[in-house]
Amino acid sequence: MNQLVAPARSLDKSTTPGALFSTLSIPIAILVLVVIGSVASPSFLTVNNLTNVLNANSAVGLIALGMTFVMVSGGLADLSVPANVAMGALVTLGAQESMGTGLAALMGLLVASMGGVVNGILIGYLRINPIIATLGTGSVLLGLSQLLVGGGIVYAQPSALSTFVKSSILGIPVFIWIFIFVALILHPLLARTSFGRWSLAVGGNYQAAQASAVPVRFTKAAAFAMTGFLAGLCGVLLALSNGQARPIIGTGYEFVAITAVVIGGTSVFGGNGSVLRTVGGVLITALIGNLIILLGFPSQATGLITGAIVLGAVGIDAYFRRKAGRL
């Protein structure tokens, strides 16, 4: 088992240019963006704005944390995210009246997790291609969510929970605390536990992992179940803080999450990656969004800039790794 994991680790610890790049690229990228921001806009380096940056992608960032496990374990990507976000949000608000906010939120989480479990069974146990499986389940679940509410907006009732979700602790919004909390659980889960090692092994070499008695199916399935749960959590939080929800609530979140994970440097092929890197990726995407507005760029340019950064980061990374491989 350790042998399986060793290559990925050793790369990070060695001192080849590639390893240096992959260790330092995220801090450097963040630094560069921060410098650009502070030079270009006087309002950038203010407590308020930096809180905005942290807060901007904290909800969708939760999904990116789960997506890290999907990619690390060789599950490519989960495209059913918007459906699970919608399910989490709509079920919570829909059930609020009959069962109270707390239970309704749990219900929302449960339903979204079920969606994730179905993905897990299809992909982990039936070994269906993740892109197709999650395309299918996403289509079904989003259709169901629209069927549930028709065209309507579901409104929330005032509740202690939603007041809490919108509040700040020690000057930092609860959304950010939740993101930090989840990241603090998931980072060691991937980096230090057997489950984390299984994930890396399954993504690194499926057959070898299977041969060394790693529960390959469970590991892969669990990554999708986790992502379903986190998408649901994202939906529940958004519904409670926004006070209303519609089926379109999570549109595009799958791409934001994938982009954040990829910018963080986790490989789509599986086998290496870290939650901490994804946190970096989430920060970078949030900084891009923030700078576009502060610098007065048109918001249509977001895709252009994000895409270019993805190509740049991944291309350079691939170049160094290839070079390291040849040496």
Partner: peptide
């Protein structure tokens, strides 16, 4: 002062508005 696309979505409008308020007050 600025035009942003928030896709008829409350959350996107919220995130963009925070930045707009920071910039323009």
């Amino acid at each position: 002062l600025a035009t942003v696309n928030a896709d008829f979505d409350q959350q996107k409008a919220l995130v963009a508005s925070r930045d707009l308020i920071t910039k323009f007050g």
